[in-house]
Write a protein that binds this DNA or RNA. Structure first.
Length: 518
RNA sequence: GGUCCCUUCGUCUAUCGGUUAGGACGAGAGAUUUUCAUUCUCUAAAGAGGGGUUCGAUUCCCCUAGGGACUACCA
């Protein structure tokens, strides 16, 4: 039957991992796991100009946080290494020579300046069958002169010799058959004049072949160069084991036109990178999903549905469910606008499901940032009481203040300050205070105080039983006035839960203070 | 400009020629409520336009429009 499924995610270490790249990696991961295949992590660092030293480590840490694991590759090892293209130059050289020898490629001496001049002189200049015979290359210079120039140390590139006039068919898993005529392709540079390194196209094909990649699942931006890649497989004699292609739709801006960029995130207020990124040169930082309080499972679930849908109505899925349901054929063809508001919703769904004890440490540190010292037990209790509230936020698009549900642990802060900080003054102009602190309130609170003070225990049930009995007997509705005492305004959880959290001493103290000051 | 890809509610999408075009986010309304919420219920909201093919098109084909990508000795 068919060969073992082997896929790869092969980023270029030129900066932080883009969220679109995360989705591409996720789809590769789902596909590999579903098919019992292997997933390879390769670093495509053939661009020495744009190389950023901290990027590789950043990408590795990103996947570690997200929970996407590889079977082979940089930092994972494996028998098809090395997995960094910069360490494979000898390998590429061999295949470049093979292409040169078989006549599928040729040597070109045109300098960047000469190329620029050609492009300036002819509106749609392309280095191809129509123009190559008017350029400075081994085809026009002849073997002898070519060897002389090379021997003299003249910089040269190696270009692929595209034969025009052929329809190249690509059988894309997502898009079906795509046909492109070779005449529109240019003689791509395969090997750069400096550093003895190949370009993406050559390195990619050589590595995918040598690493026995069965499926190339990548972004749509590669679709236009897919025919070139097919031609390369053929020229190298590898057409029989050529991988299957699947070109994924792109992630687009939430508003307006174009693909998703870092600027959109900055403007609208959402991260486009998995982790906080600090540019090593400028020291400028960019938000990360992790630091912004997103749960990795939520990010993955959200991303999975941006361009793929299993066909049922279930949106919240575990990794296992995604793996079993994933289907490249069910990926959409059109780009997806990045709906970050729905991302908040996913995060909320996952946050609500988390055990309070797991959320507690994070909430403790958030409270600490606001000068509040709390135990994990307290934080867990606060989370349970406050996770179903909502908060105000400024909408990135309209600039309006809107409300949304708690989606992040950090959302809890402005909602829960009163658990730890007692009211020190009361705003009589406040609508809630004015409405709920009447002339009877002080007396009601005195009575309630005595009931609470006399309770054998101060747990929620004991309180509720005693207060309900009092309420039934007297008809007094004490809760809102009591809330004024303990909170100072119209927010917070159930009063008994709040009182139990504060403890009897603090509860009575706040009541006494309110009675004396209101 | 050229080449290729794409086009269902505001957004993500379901539909594999016959449906009251479904779900979710977001929006609005109502109910519940011990504040603010949560929750629940309901509502509005879509097949880009024009031609075909067919008994019948959202679905298949063509054209137009619109969107996207690519067009580097970057990936």
């Amino acid at each position: 039957m068919s060969a073992k499924v082997r896929v790869r995610f092969a980023p270029s270490p030129t900066g932080p991992l883009h969220i679109g790249g995360v989705r591409t990696a996720l789809y590769n991961y789902l596909f590999a796991r579903q098919n019992g295949g292997e997933m390879i992590f390769r670093i495509e660092d053939t661009d020495t100009e744009r190389f950023v030293p901290t990027a590789e480590e950043y990408i590795i840490e990103s996947f570690k946080w997200l929970g996407i694991t590889f079977d082979e590759g940089v930092s994972y090892g494996g028998e098809y290494g090395p997995y960094r293209q910069s360490e494979r130059s000898e390998i590429y050289k061999k295949y470049v020579d093979q292409l040169l020898a078989s006549g599928h490629a040729y040597v070109a001496f045109d300098t960047p300046e000469e190329l620029d001049a050609a492009r300036a002189a002819h509106e749609n200049f392309q280095y191809d069958a129509a123009t190559r015979m008017s350029m400075r290359n081994s085809l026009t210079l002849g073997e002898e002169e070519t060897q002389r120039l090379i021997a003299a140390g003249t910089p040269y590139t190696v270009r692929f010799k595209v034969v025009p006039g052929e329809d190249i068919h690509i059988d894309d898993i997502i898009r079906g058959e795509v046909v492109i005529n070779s005449a529109v392709l240019d003689d791509k540079v395969l090997y750069k004049s400096t550093k003895q390194l190949p370009t993406y196209h050559l390195a990619n094909i050589v590595d995918d072949h040598l690493m026995k990649i069965s499926h190339v699942i990548r972004g749509e931006e590669w679709l236009p160069s897919a025919p070139l890649h097919v031609l390369l497989y053929r020229a190298l004699g590898w057409q029989d084991t050529m991988p299957r292609f699947a070109h994924l739709p792109l992630l687009l801006k939430p508003t307006g036109n174009g693909k998703l960029s870092k600027r959109d995130g900055d403007k609208l207020g959402f991260p486009v990178f998995p982790l906080l990124w600090t540019d090593p040169k400028t020291k400028a930082t960019s938000h990360g999903y992790r630091e912004d309080g997103y749960l990795p499972e939520a990010v993955l679930n959200f991303l999975a549905l941006l361009g793929w849908n299993p066909g049922d109505d279930q949106e919240i899925m575990t990794m296992e469910e995604m793996i079993s349901k994933f289907d490249l054929k069910k990926c959409s063809k059109a780009g997806a606008k990045f709906d970050y508001v729905k991302g908040w919703w996913f995060n909320r769904e996952y946050l609500l499901k988390r055990p309070a004890a797991e959320v507690a440490p994070e909430l403790v540190s958030i409270l600490a940032e606001h000068g509040v010292e709390a135990t994990e037990e307290q934080a867990a209790a606060v989370f349970e009481m406050m996770k179903t509230k909502n908060i105000e936020y400024v909408d990135g698009q309209s600039g309006q203040t809107k409300k949304r549900n708690v989606s992040f642990v950090a959302d809890l802060w402005p909602l829960c300050d009163f658990f730890f900080i007692a009211p020190t003054e009361f705003n009589r102009e406040d609508k809630f205070v004015r409405k709920n602190w009447t002339e009877h309130s002080a007396e009601d609170m005195r009575q309630l105080r005595e009931i609470l003070a006399a309770l054998p225990d101060f747990d929620v049930e004991t309180q509720r039983a005693a207060v309900d009995a009092w309420v039934a007997e007297t008809g007094v509705k004490p809760w809102n006035a009591w809330r004024v005492c303990l909170v100072g305004q119209g927010k917070g959880p159930d009063m008994h839960e709040l009182a139990a959290f504060l403890g009897r001493e603090e509860t009575l103290r706040r009541m006494d203070f309110a009675i004396a000051n209101l």
